[in-house]
Design a protein around this nucleic acid. Structure first.
Lengths: 215, 215
DNA sequence: ATATTTTTGGACGCGCTTGTCCAAATTGTC
DNA sequence: GACAATTTGGACAAGCGCGTCCAAAAATAT
């Protein structure tokens, strides 16, 4: 084993462009075929790259997979926190503002390519690589949930909501937002923007019937 | 190709006991490793059976997989409709009765072995074998949802609930029931009976705050 | 233009998996 | 006990996928 520099954390030396193109292609194929069903040739073809180049950049199928997971979880986390920052802390129209927030959440974090990939990945390969996702779970969703709960708590304090368990409210808000999406996903329906807005309105309306301030 | 009797729908001629043992083992291994990551020897070992016997009963890896999916979807459907039949049509204590129903739903259809397997399967292999699950989607969840909506509509007519869209109410009821389960699943927490009951109570309480009859 | 790095494509060995064949051992039936 | 069906284990060919090696070609830097 020659004293080669670590080939996965720092780029070997080549064009970063190909590097990312390979990771993108690998994400696509891994997502479609699963880890076991993927072979390197598929990835090379999808990335318009020779098979050898794949091995040059990421030494191993295993290492490549880990690089893909790192990349996707980082992107998803960034999207999650970006979207969370648009939460309506000082709502003018609570129902409309929450619905708009819900639409952003679904569009940017749940229905996009990374979201689908990550869901699929966690369920198919999550048990097999627990350490790969453990970090993401703690630094991603867990933090987002508690941050969202804090926002709801502030809305309660400022008199916009009536709730006693902000964490539960956050979980249920997300569940309601997902309600129509999951049925559509199971039935294979496509989800256009109209659908996203309608389902967000449904979710927020019910959420406010349960937790809205009564006059 | 000799005029052999169809080897997958009707049992060849042998002991049914082994036949089911093989399907059970195959379900277990397929669920853990995915279709691509599974090889017949794992299944044979798990079933305490020779590899040849696997081929004798179900001619092909593909056919075996299809048999497993048929078996699991049938079981899940049976469980779904059995549980649906215990819906509290004439509730004495609406909140408690709905919570008990929710617990049955989670325990018998969502958190059991078949439920986990099917979820994993649909997300990992659903795109690849669309026809395999199309039948199940139509005859399983779709019918259950509309049946559940009908129950909620009757509860509204009998004055127990206040809702205008029973289908939406059914979707949101299921979403709320799943709310705590999904966070627990993502974090890898184990879900004991106490947890199931607490999360069911949480779900029903919020559901009734939104849709319960106001005095 | 020259030197250096990266990419390419093809060939190769190796191990694993699938599916088949078959004779012997086991099981169940009459 | 005799007979039929089933199971077993082992051997086998064929194919596939991983990872490596290497020399030629292309791209990039100097």
């Amino acid at each position: 084993m020659p004293p080669v520099t670590a080939p996965d954390i720092a780029g070997p030396r080549g064009h970063i462009e190909k590097r990312l193109s390979i990771i993108d292609a690998a994400a696509c194929v891994f997502c479609r075929e699963g880890f076991g069903g993927t072979n390197i040739d598929m990835i090379a073809a999808q990335a318009n790259v020779s098979r050898q180049t794949v091995y040059n950049h990421h030494g191993d199928k295993e290492k490549l997979f880990q690089a893909v997971v790192r990349e996707v979880t980082e992107r998803i986390n960034a999207d999650l926190f970006d979207t969370l920052a648009t939460f309506p802390d000082r709502p003018t129209n609570l129902e409309a503002d929450l619905a708009a927030f819900a639409v952003r959440l679904t569009r940017n974090c749940i229905c996009n390519r990374e979201g689908k990939f990550l869901r699929k990945l966690i369920q198919s390969e999550g048990e097999r690589y627990p350490e790969l996702f453990a970090d993401w779970r703690v630094n991603g969703p867990a933090k987002v949930w508690s941050a969202l709960a804090a926002r709801f708590a502030r809305l309660a304090l400022s008199g916009h909501l009536d709730l006693d368990d902000p964490d539960l409210a956050a979980r249920q808000f997300l569940a309601l937002v997902n309600a129509d999406l999951q049925t559509a996903m199971l039935l294979g329906d496509d989800m256009d923007d109209d659908f996203l807005e309608t389902s967000a309105r449904n979710a927020v309306r019910t959420f406010l019937r349960a937790y809205g301030k009564r006059p």
